[in-house]
Design a binder for these strands. Sequence first.
DNA 1: CTAAGCCCTGCCCTTACAGGAGAGTCAAGC
DNA 2: GCTTGACTCTCCTGTAAGGGCAGGGCTTAG
Lengths: 276, 276
Amino acid sequence: MTEPAPFSIGAFSRASGLTVKALRHYHERGLLVPARVDRQTGYRAYSQANLDTAAMIRAMRELEVPLDEIAVILAECREDQDLLVYLKRHKAHLATKLEHYQGLVGRIDQVINYEQEVQRVMQEHHGTREIAEREVEPVLVAGLRMKSRYSDCGSGFAQIAKRLGRHIAGKAMCLYYDGEYREDDADFEPCFPIRKGGQAEGLDIRTLPGCRCVTLVHPGPYDTLKYSYAKVLAYANDKGYEIDLPTREVYLKGPGMIFKGNPKKYLTEIQLPIKA
Amino acid sequence: MTEPAPFSIGAFSRASGLTVKALRHYHERGLLVPARVDRQTGYRAYSQANLDTAAMIRAMRELEVPLDEIAVILAECREDQDLLVYLKRHKAHLATKLEHYQGLVGRIDQVINYEQEVQRVMQEHHGTREIAEREVEPVLVAGLRMKSRYSDCGSGFAQIAKRLGRHIAGKAMCLYYDGEYREDDADFEPCFPIRKGGQAEGLDIRTLPGCRCVTLVHPGPYDTLKYSYAKVLAYANDKGYEIDLPTREVYLKGPGMIFKGNPKKYLTEIQLPIKA
DNA sequence: CTAAGCCCTGCCCTTACAGGAGAGTCAAGC
DNA sequence: GCTTGACTCTCCTGTAAGGGCAGGGCTTAG
């Protein structure tokens, strides 16, 4: 250490692994001030001691510690032990980010899975536009019964999804407890099939019984559902079936999670349980 | 939809959950252009249709999709299905970030653990400045034997740490195979205690045998180690012990992982194995 | 003498808005 | 008609940590 062994900024850049730009930036911020600066030319000259500081800054930057905090640490710490408290704080910060991204990946996965499911179901039901009778399997659902207007249905789905988003295992459905159409005080229950039983305040989690149903897939917007209902009710009447409440609608394809989509492409399955 | 039911920007902000600032920004970027803009006043008027787009943008922004990509999606997609490819791409991007932060948390954890260990060891050895004889336990190490200058030791540690960083389980040590001091072609082996056996190309992973040693903790910089060596060798000579190679140095406290620290505070344990 | 390689400062660019200044607009109350 | 308060407009600046480039100065080798 007899001579300061001055580095030019380029040489120091190679020695420290920091870019020239970064070095100038750190100089400006006061984090890493060169040992000497030529008054005439403005040329920076870095010393061996600068190299230690540079290594420290690099190590901290690799952990994404912000420059402001590095400045504080440089001002207050000489030893690694002094900065344990800063490191712990920063770790907590990183952990927060980590959780944040875990959450995002989880949510985007949900969306992707949901949309893939929609795609699958649409393929499956392609061309099935006939009235049919079939056995509907029992299914575990979480429902939220409402006496309200039909249009509030959407907010019901939103509430369920918010609380059980992670456990949703199928297409949204709605149960109708009125035997007839009502505008303002309809009695219905939006629900989602879920993966496993549990508790959720305000939600009714139970298994819908399986049953034999008259079914019809209705294509298009919801305001034309009544025509499909007319068809399927006429069919049931013809056959002399009595209908069990609640009736069900399954939204094979409705508004997406991101796009509302084109209502002409909506697919809704009407299920009328046949009284045994 | 007889009337566009125009929202003022404030009302639209409340309806959509986007800030006024954000709405103006989206307008400027062309993502969400209000249904009408008053020529005179510049007042924006938003429509019901705008609300759908706003919901879509909000959903995408919550997944941290960048605005540029949202613009592309808005230009090309009408249905959720169309954007599966974008979502998957974005998910990959998020997953990358996730891994990145996992790596950071892992590394900062290493640093914290290491420094806590240093702190513990320093407390333990506080005031122990006497020559002692004791049994040294066997220990599993990864070493990198070098014939070089002593000062290259550091790069040896760096190489080992880079490859086995995750498995390091104790303080850095160095084995010396020369019975005497050599400047340029010294024969020595930096090593780290590690957690479990394994393979690493170029590294010698093995268990150092336990042995009875004459030990002395040397405080201060490495260039004064020779005085401590003189003391401990004189002691061994007095007792008539013969010394087994390699001798060992354990760096209880040396330069930290972040700060170089003050050499006056360094603690180095010299271990001379006694030939049985 | 000139060309190459360094170095300097200063300006603009990146993301997705937030904050604020200064000015114009709107509806209601007096 | 005037005022008041709530709203709205545009424009500017700031964020983190530099990257990229322009225009110009320095030094040294051929």
